[in-house]
Nucleic acid binder design. Sequence first.
DNA 1: AATGAATGAGGATTCATTCAT
DNA 2: TATGAATGAATCCTCATTCAT
Lengths: 228, 228, 228, 228
Amino acid sequence: MDSPVNSTVDSTGDSTGDVPSKRRVPQQTRSRGRVARVLEATAQLVVAGGVETVNTRVIATAAGIPVASLYQYFADKDEILLALVERDLADVDAEVAADLAELSLLSVRTIVETTMRAHVNVYRRRPAFVVIWLRGRTNAAINDFCRGHNRLMAGRLFELARGAGLVADPSTTLHAQLAVEVADRIFQLAFEDTLEGHSAIIDEGIDVVTSYLENHATPAGISGVARR
Amino acid sequence: MDSPVNSTVDSTGDSTGDVPSKRRVPQQTRSRGRVARVLEATAQLVVAGGVETVNTRVIATAAGIPVASLYQYFADKDEILLALVERDLADVDAEVAADLAELSLLSVRTIVETTMRAHVNVYRRRPAFVVIWLRGRTNAAINDFCRGHNRLMAGRLFELARGAGLVADPSTTLHAQLAVEVADRIFQLAFEDTLEGHSAIIDEGIDVVTSYLENHATPAGISGVARR
Amino acid sequence: MDSPVNSTVDSTGDSTGDVPSKRRVPQQTRSRGRVARVLEATAQLVVAGGVETVNTRVIATAAGIPVASLYQYFADKDEILLALVERDLADVDAEVAADLAELSLLSVRTIVETTMRAHVNVYRRRPAFVVIWLRGRTNAAINDFCRGHNRLMAGRLFELARGAGLVADPSTTLHAQLAVEVADRIFQLAFEDTLEGHSAIIDEGIDVVTSYLENHATPAGISGVARR
Amino acid sequence: MDSPVNSTVDSTGDSTGDVPSKRRVPQQTRSRGRVARVLEATAQLVVAGGVETVNTRVIATAAGIPVASLYQYFADKDEILLALVERDLADVDAEVAADLAELSLLSVRTIVETTMRAHVNVYRRRPAFVVIWLRGRTNAAINDFCRGHNRLMAGRLFELARGAGLVADPSTTLHAQLAVEVADRIFQLAFEDTLEGHSAIIDEGIDVVTSYLENHATPAGISGVARR
DNA sequence: AATGAATGAGGATTCATTCAT
DNA sequence: TATGAATGAATCCTCATTCAT
C-alpha cells in the first residue's frame, strides 16, 4: 500500500474493525471478539431495518451481550454507529488507494472513475454504511466524521492530481472538495432504493464529476500521463 | 407568473402558509391565523435550535396555544415540519418561476444560474427550510416531499430547456435529475455553517452544474436563444 | 300486549328506539331521525369492533353528524350506549311478554324455556347488545341498568309463576333473582364467540335454571297448569 | 397437598406473588421485594378505588418506585393487574386443593360446597381479586386468563368426581363448565356490594349448582362415597 | 472486566366535553 | 337547534445511561 492516497481519517483507527473510538476505551485486548460482534450485529440491524430501528437493547440482544456491556466498548450509543462508519470508511480508503495504485494512466477521468468505482465496490460490500450515511440521517458525530473524510479524500486526490501535473494553476482544493461532495450525492441517488446502486446513475455521475474537473485541468489532465 | 415553470408540488399548497395537509385535519377555514402562528413559531424554534429541539410542547408554547390544539391543524408532529417545508418550497417555486420569467436570454447557463440564485434568495429568506432540509435529519415524509420536489423541478426545467431548443437529442430527464440533486448538495455545503450561504461555493456550484449540463446541450444551449 | 309481564324498566322509555334518556334532552320532535341514526351507527360500530372502539368521533362520523351535535341528543357518551341498551332491552321485554302470552301450559319449565328462548331470539336480532352486555365490559350506568332490568325481569316472572300457583310457599324473589342472573351468565357463555349463540349451551342452560327452580316449585309448577 | 386438584393454571406461577409473567421481563431474581410491593400497592389501590382508577403513575407512587421501573418487572400496565390475578387465582387453587383433600365424604354436594366455600374464603382474603374480576371491567388478557382458569377448574373437578364414580355416564365437561361459570356469577352477585360476600346468596348458590349437577350424578354422586 | 438493576428525562396522542356563534 | 373550534386532562411507554457489585 505505497499509494499516495492512503492515510485514514482518524490516525487512531486501524482497519481490524475492532477498534471503537475516543475516550474511556479500556483494554480491548481480551474483548476483540465482542466489539466486532457488536459492530456486525449493528450492521445487520441497520441493513434490516434502517438506522432509526437500532437502539442499545436491540444491538445488545443481537450481539448476545448485556446492554450495560456496550458501555465497556463504546462511550455511548452514537459511538457504535460511528465505529461502524469508521470501519467502513477505512475500507473505502484502502480500496481507493489500492485501485489508484494500479492505474497506469493518470488523468482526471481515470482518477475520478477509479475512485468512484472503488467507492461503489466497497458500498456493495458494506450495505450498512450505505444505509447509515447515504440514506439514514443520523447523528452529528457521523455527519462530521463523514464530512471530514470527504475533505481528506478531496485533499489526497487533489495532491495526487497536482503531483501528476493534471491540475491547472489557479485551481484550489475547493474544486476537489466540491467534486467529492457531488460524487457523494451521486452515490446517495444511486443507492437510494437499492443496495446494489444503479449503474446508470453511477456512470452518469462519473461524467458529472469528470466534466466539471476537466474545466480545471491541464491538457495533460485531460489526455493523461503515464504513471511514474 | 406566466412562466412555464410554476406548478407547485402539492396542488393543495398555496403560499399563504395557512394550509397544512393530509388526513384528518378538520378545520382550517376559521383558524387561519393560528396555523400560520404555529408554522412561524416552529420556524423560529428550528432556526434557533435545530430540528431535533422542536417538540409538540415547545411548539405549542411558542405559538401560544395548547398542545392539543396542534392536533386540530396537523395530523401529527411530523406534519407540522412538513407543512413548513411545503410552504417554503412553494415559495421557491414562485421565486424560480418569477425569475425565469424575466430571463431574456435562455441558455443552459442562464437557466442554471437564475434557478440556483432564486433558490439561494429564498433560502436566505427562509432559514428554517435550510435548517430542516439542508442540515437537519428529519423524517421520511419530509425527505420524500423534498425529493419529489427535486424531481418536479428537474422535470420542469428540462421541459423549459427542451422547449427552447437547448437540449441535445439523446438527453433525458435523468440528466436534469442529477443536475438538480447536485445543486441541492451544493446548497447543503454552502449553507452548512452559515444561513447566508457561502457565495464562493454557490458561484462554483453554478459552474459545476452548468459545465455538466452543457455536455448535453445544443450549440444554442450554450450560446443562448432570445426569449420568445 | 296484555301479558302479565310487560312493564319496561324505564317508564320513560318507549320502543321507538329514538328516545335517549335522562336530563337535558331537548326537543326531539324534529331530530328523530338523527337519534336513530346515531344509535344505529353505534350498534354497527360496536358489532364491528367491540365497545372499546367506539368514541364520539367515530360515532358522529358514522352517523354523519358533527360530534358536537351528539350532545344535543345525549347528555354524554355513556348515554349513547345506554340508550342502545335500553332500546334493545325494551325489545327483550316485548318479546318475552309476547311469547309468554302465547303459552297455554304454565310450568316452571315452560316459563323458563320460553323466556330464555325469547332472550336468545332478541339477542340474535340485536348483536350490539350481545357485544355490549355479554362481552364488553363497559360503564357503570349500563351495568346498573342491566342489573336493574334483571331484577325487574325476575320480579315479573316470579309474580307470573306465583300467580299461577307454581311457586312453593317459602320461596322468595331471591330465587328468581338468582335464576335470572344464572341465565344471564349462560347467555354470556353461549354468545362468547358467536353472535348466533351456541344451541348446546342454551339448551343445557335451560336445564340448569329449570332444575334449580323446580326445587322451589309446587307439584303444579312441575306438571304445569293450563293458562287461564 | 396431594389432592387430585392442585395444578395451577400457569405452571410458571408460584404463590410467592413475586413472579410476574410473559415477554421481555428481564430480571426478577434480585428484586423480589419490589415486584411484591408493586402488586401489593396495586391491590390496595384497586380495592380503594376500583380498577379504573389505577394507572402507572399511581401504582408507581404507591409502590414507592419510579414509573419506569414498573417496566422492569412488567411488560406493560395490563400485566400488573394480570399478575395480581394470577397470584390470587393460584391462591384459590391452593385453597380448593387443600380443602378438597380434607373431604372424607365425596359427593356432588360436598365437592360443590367445599369448592365454592374455598373460593369465598380466598375472595375474602383477596378483595382486590373481587374488585378486578367480579366487579371490574378490565382488559382482555385478564378475561382470558380467568376464563381459562374456570375451564381448568371445571376439568379438574370433573375428573375428581368421575374418578370417584359420582358422574353419570353421558355427562361431559360441558356440564362442569357450566357449573363453574354459574358459580362464578353467583360470586359476582354475592360480592357485588360487599367484600364479605352475602352468605344468603352464597348458600343459595351452592344449591343452584348442586341441584343442577345432581341431574348428572350417579346415585353415589348424590349419597356420597367415602374417600379412598 | 462485566452486568443486573435501576431510573431520569422526555414525548406524542387521545378524547370527551364545552361554548360562542 | 346546530356546530366549528378549542382545550383541559390524562396516560403509557421508550431509552440511553449509570452504578453498585
